[in-house]
Design a protein around this nucleic acid. Structure first.
Length: 537
DNA sequence: ATCTAACGCGCC
DNA sequence: AAAGGGCGCGTTAGAT
């Protein structure tokens, strides 16, 4: 069903609302009016979902789809080679009208007070509805002007859906059993210590380290550790755990144990839980498109770095289940589809891509995997060069695809994902460095970045498309509670588990079709219906 | 007192 | 000879 776009701008409790092409109305209860209109499933157009949508959720309304001007502006600016310019509606409007751009870091202005910056700190004094309307119209024009407007439009829709999902996941929270978390910490570290103190187990390990060195050493200080080892006659280049594992010294064992537990204590300990877990729900702050490749980042809570050992405290509510699903071997499958490499696509039609690859190689699965990863990451270590030669021979189009991306990067050019997300340009200092004799290293570094960018960014947009589809098809009250690059968790009443798993499967198929049309490549999701996250795979 | 860089390691 | 892409974030240690 084709339905219209409706622009909204909140101002206090009320706001303005405009069916595109029609009159702008002021309404005192914006969310109430939106609730009535949502039945027609319009695409809501708003400035910045991070500000706008949480209030809508608090009022218990969820919308089907939106066009997020802030997120879209970021995609467009990057595609236009203007990476990093301010993305707010106010900034976009100011650019349209040649006004000072809020948030812009302009060059220093001559003055007798040293460094002054010409910055418009606030949006232009124009009604929000007017800014939304003009920026929206401008964005639609710029999307239409892209090389492939249909693909870019899909990217915009997927990114905007990501904005909805991120807000909803923060709103709903991920099940997180505070009592189980506390028990786990106590088991590993000892009881919760007083503020500013080490837990008993950590203090014990720290004392062991000092005893082994025969003097007081702070195990949190790499400098002190390196010095202490030197005094003991052992020279270490760093205190990374894989380095220390090679060292024979009585301090090593307690030190490694200390480092592991200290990280748990400070990153995901009691203080962390006090801040981020409430009512047995973990509510992190996601940053949609926070990584240049389009992956999400977090601005708090470290949701994308939760140690695996913590999975045991993620437990479904009584009578509910977690449907845990991840897209296995997503990046090589995406590469196969993008590059149109028939051989690789054939292998990517199998459940275990690397095994299929190994057959084609006539080698071991591990070799095939290393070859694939080296091609995507630009690695050349160990046996990789031999394997890469084989890769080039057997899968010339896939190999050529990532090589071309690497070459473009080395030449300082931009690269784009399948749907048109664009890499940042190299910095001025990079350009200077690359033109010098010592510049080859910098060029190769950027080549590796752009080589990986095309694959990682396309994988990220596949995941966004998959979630966007999934979100609209989930049977109520099932809802997404977690997303980590290629993995999702849905929380649902237990009887709905199998249906949700089926919907996840369908969403993956649909996303593959949306991006790549007809392709032999399959991007399957492995799903598990569990009550505890730790029980998945 | 506050900011920043480096380190190191958790996740994909 | 070795070598890989992307992040967040707590701690230390040095700079301001």
């Amino acid at each position: 069903m084709r339905v219209g776009r409706v622009e909204v701008a909140a101002e206090g409790a009320g706001g303005s609302i405009t069916a595109v092409g029609g009159e702008t109305r002021w309404v005192d209860d914006l969310v109430g009016v939106m609730r009535e209109l949502e039945g027609e499933r319009p695409r809501w157009v708003w400035g910045d979902g991070r500000e706008f949508y949480p209030g809508v959720l608090k009022a218990d309304l969820r919308v089907s789809r939106c066009h997020d001007l802030f997120l879209t502006e970021g995609l467009l600016l990057a595609a236009e080679g203007r990476f990093g310019e301010p993305r707010s509606v106010g900034a976009a409007y100011a650019r349209l009208h040649g006004l000072p751009v809020p948030g812009e870091r302009a060059g220093p202005v001559a003055g007798d007070q040293g460094t002054l910056f010409e910055t418009a700190s606030e949006a232009p004094p124009v009604p929000a509805a007017e800014m939304v309307a003009e920026v929206h119209a401008d964005q639609l024009r710029r999307i239409a002007a892209r090389e492939d407007p249909a693909r870019f439009g899909l990217l915009v829709a997927a990114e905007s859906a990501g904005g909805l999902i991120a807000a909803e996941m923060s709103h709903d929270g991920m099940p997180w059993r505070r009592d189980a978390h506390d028990a786990l910490l106590t088991e590993l570290l000892g009881p919760r210590p007083a503020h500013g103190m080490r837990p008993a187990r950590l203090q014990h390990l720290a004392d062991e380290v000092s005893a082994a060195f025969g003097r007081q050493v702070n195990p949190d200080s790499p400098q002190q550790i390196v010095k202490a080892f030197k005094t003991a006659g052992v020279t270490v280049p760093s205190t990374r755990s894989h380095v220390l594992k090679q060292v024979e010294h009585p301090a090593v064992a307690p030190l490694l144990a200390y480092k592991e537990l200290a990280r748990l204590f400070s990153f995901h300990g009691w203080v962390w839980a006090d801040q981020w877990v409430h009512g047995d729900r973990f509510r992190p702050e996601y940053v949609v498109g926070g990584v240049v490749s389009g992956r999400w980042a977090t601005s708090g809570g470290g949701a994308l770095q939760i140690p695996k050992i913590m999975r045991r405290v993620v437990v479904a509510d009584e009578g509910w289940s977690l449907v845990v699903a991840d897209a296995a071997q997503l990046e090589p499958r995406v590469l196969a589809a993008m590059a149109g490499d028939r051989g690789l696509a054939h292998a990517a039609g199998e459940i275990d891509l690397y095994s299929a690859l190994a057959q084609s190689f006539g080698g071991a699965r591990d070799d095939a995997k290393l070859a694939m990863l080296s091609a995507m990451y630009g690695g050349t270590s160990g046996d990789a060069s031999k394997l890469l030669a084989l890769m080039r021979e057997r899968f010339p189009r896939a190999y050529g695809f990532v090589e071309a991306a690497a070459k473009a990067g080395e030449d300082g050019k931009l690269v784009r994902s399948w749907l048109g997300r664009t890499s940042p340009p190299p910095s001025d200092s990079w350009r200077e460095l690359v033109s010098t004799p010592e510049g080859t290293r910098a060029a190769r570094d950027r080549g590796r970045f752009t080589r990986n960018f095309v694959v990682q960014a396309t994988a990220a947009e596949w995941a966004l498309a998959m979630m966007a589809v999934l979100r609209t098809r989930l049977p109520a009250p099932a809802h997404l509670v977690f997303f980590q690059h290629d993995e999702i968790i849905v929380h649902c009443p237990a009887p709905l588990g199998p249906e949700v798993a089926a919907v996840v499967h369908d969403a993956a198929v649909e996303a593959t079709h949306l991006l790549f049309g007809s392709t032999p490549v399959r991007i399957p999701m492995e799903t598990a219906i569990v009550s505890c996250y730790a029980d998945a795979k």
